[in-house]
């Protein structure tokens, strides 16, 4: 529990919150067995009104709690993998750009700039329009607009590492440039990039929610965004249908931010 002890209060609260969410995602099939999209009761049962449907049911009679639990799975799955993909692609591009320099650097940085110029959400929309919505394509689409920051941070770090002794040593040992870049420099440049992880995960959660809210999410899965959109059609009669999944979203993003703040603060303390 060494890591735990090094976290500050904020990060601990975030870690506990996120652990509960992960547990919810893992246990969803046990707590709420069956298809969360199946109709299981009367439509529009209010929260806490029925023991069978603790959080009520939606317009069609689908259980809100079941949707919420299964939605956690989609949210965390998409967010984690697209943030990971964005960080990996970003750090590879950043390493190449920073280490190779010259023409390669110019080209790669122009491409990075181009990706930063187009709104990430628009990129994700365009990508989804091409590939059609499913979990893997969502992961791809979201990471498309999410990798540029990692590329920039890694590049800056690589530029400062490039002239260090251990790189010069690797050069005299006769290692090839790309070998040096990926075996010696990238692992050392990864620290600051990891501190971006929380921001990337939070951004991915929000983009996924917005996409599925607009109806561009995976139609075969429950997502919080689609639940909010579904509830919107009966916003006057049953506002809780949109509000409850939104609260779940806020809690998830908040837990990620809390952890991220704890991590980045430690990052600053450790030189």
């Amino acid at each position: 529990m060494n890591v735990w002890r090094r976290l500050n209060l904020e990060a601990r609260i975030g870690a506990v919150m996120l652990s509960i969410l992960v547990l919810m995602a893992l246990l969803a099939p046990l707590i709420a067995p069956g298809d969360p999209l199946a109709i299981t009761g009367e439509p529009m049962v209010r929260p806490f009104a029925s023991e069978a449907h603790v959080l009520g049911t939606d317009r069609l009679g689908r259980d809100v709690l079941a949707g919420l639990l299964h939605g956690t799975r989609t949210t965390l799955l998409v967010a984690f993998f697209s943030a990971a993909a964005a960080l990996i692609v970003g750090s590879i591009v950043g390493t190449l750009s920073g280490y190779l320099g010259g023409f390669a650097d110019t080209v790669l940085m122009r491409i990075t700039e181009a990706f930063q110029t187009v709104p990430g959400f628009l990129l994700a929309l365009a990508a989804i329009s091409v590939t059609g919505p499913s979990v893997p394509t969502l992961i791809f689409a979201i990471s498309l607009g999410n990798w540029t920051q990692a590329a920039r941070v890694t590049r800056a770090e690589v530029l400062s590492l490039r002239e260090r002794d251990f790189v010069a040593a690797a050069r005299t040992l006769g290692m090839r440039p790309l070998e040096i870049a990926f075996r010696e420099i990238l692992p050392n440049a990864f620290g600051p990039t990891v501190s971006l992880a929380a921001i990337s995960v939070a951004a991915a959660i929000l983009i996924e929610a917005a996409l599925s809210f607009l109806g561009f999410g995976d139609p075969n899965r429950v997502t919080w965004g689609s639940m909010i959109a579904e509830g919107r059609t009966v916003l006057r009669a049953a506002p809780y249908l949109s509000i409850v999944p939104g609260i779940a979203l806020v809690i998830t993003v908040l837990s990620v931010h809390l952890i991220g703040r704890g991590l980045s603060r430690r990052e600053r303390l450790v030189p």
């Binding site: 939070a202 929610a209 917005a210 916003l235 979203l249 806020v250 993003v253 908040l254 931010h257």
Partner: peptide, 17 residues
């Protein structure tokens, strides 16, 4: 920090309500 976690479109719905 708490507000930073609120998605804009959901906030919009809450404000509408």
């Amino acid at each position: 920090l708490a507000i930073y976690a609120v998605p804009g479109f959901w906030l919009g719905l809450v404000l509408i309500v």
